[in-house]
């Protein structure tokens, strides 16, 4: 059993937990994820590692309630436990293995959307720890939905919050903020974008135009997370890759987002579909009737 040491609600539908998992904490790096399972009958749910404490042996996860399983998970309190907690899975972000001096010469932009602020945080923190100041854009629907602001401010070089409804920071989507920063003369060597697939898709369309190499973190449906089932397969250029072992981070300009978004729908429950429609707007194709998850 993996004990929950802290459980906190960050915003409407967004929750944070610190979980005891010493093996994972000892070996994880930014960019990796875990798979959690609540009880005997629960699903295996992939979640990005948001923070870790190697000494105490804990992992921080941040999740949004989407369908039945994540709603159930939101009811867990400090003192409760997960039956299973596997990780770290996937590959660390590319920069973890790069030469620090050459990284220092790069101008790096992080773009997070919604709960995507959680996976972006450990990467920005890693940069800070290695003496690198990066620019961070965090988008959310409205001010109340913005998460991890003080944490992110503490580690970011420049921090640019954006809200769709203009209640805080830059008014508008993250893409308009990127355009603005580019117009103001910022020349980025690399961009890391993490958030809903639809956001990553539009960020990639833009950064391609702006000629900024872009890394995205893909969150397809997964089962085992070890390369055994192929549920997480994606087209990256002409190649098929398994997100759980080859990723989850990929060159965003090679990802086939339209296909990935369709695949993500496969088992959506009603709540899940409603949530995704909210996140992904008009690109959502609900009501296909094929959904096996509506039970």
């Amino acid at each position: 059993m993996y004990k929950i040491l802290k459980a906190e609600k960050l915003a409407d539908m967004i929750y944070l937990m610190d979980v005891e998992a010493p093996r994972v904490a000892r070996h994880c790096e930014p960019g990796q994820f875990v798979i959690v399972k609540m009880d005997e009958k629960g699903e295996r749910i992939p979640l990005t590692i948001c923070d870790y404490d190697r000494e105490v042996g804990t992992i921080t996860i941040v999740f949004q309630t989407v369908g039945a399983s994540t709603h159930k998970m939101a009811e867990l309190k400090a003192g409760d436990a997960f039956r299973d907690f596997t990780g770290p899975l996937g590959c660390p972000s590319e920069f973890v293995g790069e030469d620090i001096e050459s990284l220092k010469n790069k101008k790096i932009l992080f773009v997070a959307g919604g709960v995507g602020a959680a996976p972006v945080y450990p990467q920005v923190k890693w940069m800070k720890e290695h003496g690198i100041d990066v620019d961070v854009i965090v988008g959310s629907k409205t001010k109340d939905m913005l998460i991890l602001e003080s944490e992110m401010r503490a580690v970011a070089g420049n921090y640019y919050p954006c809200t769709d409804d203009g209640t805080y920071g830059h008014a508008g989507m993250v893409t308009t903020k990127i355009e603005k920063l580019a117009e103001e003369g910022n020349k980025y060597d690399v961009c890391v974008a993490i958030g809903p697939m639809i956001m990553m898709k539009f960020v990639c369309l833009l950064t391609k135009k702006l000629n900024i190499p872009t890394i995205v973190s893909m969150n397809p449906i997964m089962v085992d997370g070890t390369g055994m089932c192929g549920a997480c397969r994606l087209h990256i250029g002409d190649e098929i890759k398994f997100a759980c072992v080859d990723g989850p981070e990929f060159d965003g300009h090679l990802v086939n987002f339209d296909e990935a978004m369709k695949r993500q729908q496969m088992y959506k429950t009603e709540e899940g579909r409603a949530m995704l429609k909210l996140q992904e707007g008009d690109t959502h194709h609900g009501g296909c009737g094929h959904c096996g998850g509506d039970k």
């Binding site: 089962v223 085992d224 390369g227 055994m228 089932c229 192929g230 549920a231 397969r233 994606l234 087209h235 098929i240 296909e259 369709k262 695949r263 729908q265 496969m266 094929h290």
Partner: peptide, 23 residues
């Protein structure tokens, strides 16, 4: 590690590896 055929349409929804279906 499951193999696929590499034919068109293999990433469509409703295409599984036997491993995924059985798992």
């Amino acid at each position: 590690l499951p193999m696929f055929m590499g034919i068109p349409g293999e990433t469509a929804n409703g295409v599984f590896s036997a491993n995924e279906y059985l798992t």
